[in-house]
């Protein structure tokens, strides 16, 4: 009669999973899905045939076409452009649909973000300038990045002011800009400069190629825009009283057709 072999020692079975273990897995999975969906790469807004004709888009498609050609995938820039537009717009639609149910979660936990930062770096930025009149001449009080002219610089150069001023480079945020002009006027009034003429403007700049910058030694200065003059007085400093219209509705398109340098930090 044969005898059964002795039983091998076995590892103790892990404890059974509880409801909480499964619930935690579900909640963490939902969180990961919710924060990943808005970060799926895509253009900031839907692509149109007109947008595809912009210089930056043409360059990107040209570069992509060359790269694909190098690995044997020959596609004309027109075909590739159409393909890019279809895919990008599809991604945008799918992303919006997938993230819609999470809107309350994003609102209360602050977890929605695309992390699109410095994806497009402008070559035509703008610089804030503040001048006061001295007879017929304008004397600079504040010029961004100029240590010689840094009136109110502690505030104007703070990071949150920079974020606002950065929007002005694309001519968006006009209501806030006019508020800034009024605020600067008030500040001059508080410092005892009643009756002074003040001018606030944005100076369009062009960033040349490194070779040109080496030769020039500086950026190319273009014409100013949003030039606002005020006489420093209690009237000019008075609050407007009514909320301005929506910023986006007021901000015109960039004068050079370019997106602004994005407000987010890299």
């Amino acid at each position: 009669m044969s005898t059964a072999p002795p039983a091998l020692p076995t590892e103790p079975a892990p404890p059974a999973l509880r409801v909480w273990d499964w619930l935690r897995l579900l909640l963490i999975s939902v969180h990961i899905f919710a924060i990943t969906v808005p970060a799926v790469p895509s253009p900031p807004s839907a692509l149109t045939p007109k947008k595809l004709q912009e210089r930056g888009a043409q360059q990107a498609i040209g570069g992509l076409s060359d790269a694909l050609g190098a690995i044997g995938l020959e596609l004309s820039e027109e075909t590739l452009g159409g393909l890019v537009m279809t895919v990008a717009n599809g991604v945008i639609s799918a992303r919006e649909a997938a993230s819609r149910p999470f809107a309350p979660y994003y609102r209360h936990a602050g977890t929605r973000q695309s992390w699109r930062m410095f994806s497009r770096v402008a070559d035509r930025p703008a610089r804030l300038e503040v001048h006061r009149a001295d007879g017929e001449a304008w004397v600079p009080l504040y010029v961004a990045l100029d240590p010689e002219h840094a009136w109110a610089g502690r505030t104007l150069r703070s990071e949150r002011f920079r974020a606002m001023i950065n929007n002005f480079a694309s001519k968006s945020g006009r209501t806030t800009y006019l508020g800034l002009v009024r605020w600067l006027t008030c500040r001059r009034l508080e410092e005892g400069h009643a009756g002074e003429r003040l001018r606030v403007q944005l100076r369009r700049l062009a960033v040349p190629s490194p070779a040109v910058l080496r030769a020039r030694g500086g950026l190319i200065e273009k014409a100013p825009y949003w030039v606002e003059e005020r006489v420093v007085s209690a009237e000019a400093c008075a609050p407007p009283g009514l909320a301005g219209p929506d910023e986006d509705a007021e901000g015109g398109p960039p004068d050079d057709g370019q997106a602004p340098p994005e407000g987010d930090a890299p």
Binding site: A39, A60, G63, Q113, S114, W115, M117, S119, V121
Partner: peptide, 13 residues
């Protein structure tokens, strides 16, 4: 996620 997403969205020339 932050770094990867910001990198992959840098598609301009």
């Amino acid at each position: 996620l932050v770094y990867t997403a910001t990198g992959l969205q840098k598609v301009n020339p």
